[in-house]
């Protein structure tokens, strides 16, 4: 899970989930905690989906 997807692609990660921002990949300090946690859930759901999806090459789970 990373913000700078191009680096992950360059270095060879196979399952990539784009995140929010470098200092807070799984959160957004501008939002109240409940909304932040909702962002976190959505991103982690994508990560779980990535882990349960067969891939044959580098894949970005937008």
């Amino acid at each position: 899970m990373c913000t700078v997807v191009p680096i992950s692609l360059t270095v060879g990660a196979n399952r990539i989930v784009p995140t929010v921002a470098i200092p807070h990949p799984l959160g957004n300090p501008a939002l109240p905690l409940e909304e932040e946690q909702e962002i976190r859930r959505k991103l982690l759901d994508k990560a779980l989906k990535a882990l349960t999806t067969e891939v044959s090459e580098q894949t970005v789970f937008e």
Partner: peptide, 28 residues
């Protein structure tokens, strides 16, 4: 990187809070 946000709530980088919730709910 600007450490202020992670220092206030490190779940923003390491999502322990939500994964605990998923563990409890049987999602993982």
């Amino acid at each position: 990187y600007d450490p202020v946000y992670a220092n206030l709530d490190a779940d923003r980088v390491l999502p322990v809070d939500i994964l605990r919730e998923y563990e409890k709910d049987g999602k993982i």
